[in-house]
């Protein structure tokens, strides 16, 4: 399947990539503006906005800290919850474990604004509204579907013959889990973790309802200033976010088989 693309096809793909990158490139270029307004092409280019974002304004520093904390914690939590569910379903699964997988995938499959409104009500009744831990739990629930999928893909890729061989030689389930299942699913587990981390970092609407303006994240902070016009400092946040995403997914691609993870056939060569 390694033949050259038709030039028109390559051109079409390039055009798609250009349109895809265009708005983000414009935002990034706007970060170089010397003045306070967002102009494109940038006027009086400077890197002062970067210093402002990372070291200067405490509003942005706090928002960045909250974004990072929520992203990392909810990613760990979602992965930890998804693992046993995916494992139980893979084992042949009772009705309950399948129901668990369905329930876990539901928030991601429905319009996020509705889930956000519902979580807002839930946390209002349980004194969680506006707390960081409620934010972490909310994102873990919203993105649970992602590690569920990646870990399931990983479990399905395990050769049953290995398990049969181990069982014949008298390995218990916990020994097999530790020596066969776990090592082979590590790349898929880590991928799921990274997916949640990146999406949580970028998520807006659910966090808006859950935070109730008691804390801000970077995306919330940017939305707050949306109506008052953009500032070049916000564009620095965009650069940071895109860099984090590219790094995370490049790491996934480096240690795992990304085409396989996204659903292509395993490579035969």
């Amino acid at each position: 399947m390694r033949r050259r693309l038709h030039p028109a096809a390559a051109l079409f793909m390039g055009l798609c990539a250009l349109v895809l990158a265009l708005p983000i490139l414009v935002v990034m270029a706007a970060a170089l503006n010397g003045g306070r307004t967002m102009l494109f092409p940038p006027e009086d280019p400077t890197l002062a906005r970067f210093a402002e974002f990372f070291a200067g304004d405490p509003v942005w520093r706090d928002a960045l800290w909250n974004s990072g904390l929520i992203a990392v914690s909810s990613a760990v939590l979602a992965t930890a919850l998804a693992w046993p569910i995916a494992y139980l379903v893979w084992q042949g699964g009772s009705g309950l474990s399948k129901a668990l997988a369905a329930a876990g995938a539901m928030p991601f499959a429905l319009p996020p604004i509705v889930f956000g409104v519902g979580l807002g009500f839930l946390w209002a009744f349980t004194a969680g509204l506006g707390t960081l831990w409620a934010g972490i739990l909310s994102h873990a629930a919203l993105f649970l579907a992602l590690p569920l999928v990646t870990i399931s893909v990983g479990l399905q890729s395990i050769d049953r013959a290995h398990l049969d061989a181990a069982a014949t030689m008298g390995a218990t389930e916990s020994v097999m889990l530790r020596t066969i299942v776990w090592p082979q699913t590590i790349p898929y587990t880590v991928s799921g973790l990274f997916f949640v981390m990146v999406l949580s970092f970028n998520e807006f609407i659910v966090m808006f309802f859950v935070s109730a303006s008691a804390f801000t994240t970077v995306t919330l902070q940017i939305f707050n200033s949306l109506r008052n016009g953009f500032t070049p400092t916000m564009a620095v946040a965009a650069i940071l976010f895109v860099s984090v995403s590219i790094t995370a997914f490049a790491l996934v691609a480096r240690w795992g088989d990304l085409p396989r993870l996204m659903g292509a056939e395993p490579e035969h060569d």
Binding site: L226, F230, V242, I246
Partner: peptide, 25 residues
């Protein structure tokens, strides 16, 4: 394919607020 997928995944995870900001400009 792997390189394209990294690009696509990065682009899908770009926050709606940034996308709107870019198109707004």
């Amino acid at each position: 394919q792997t390189i394209w997928l990294v690009f696509l995944l990065s682009s899908v995870s770009v926050s709606e607020v940034f996308v709107v900001m870019g198109w707004d400009i």
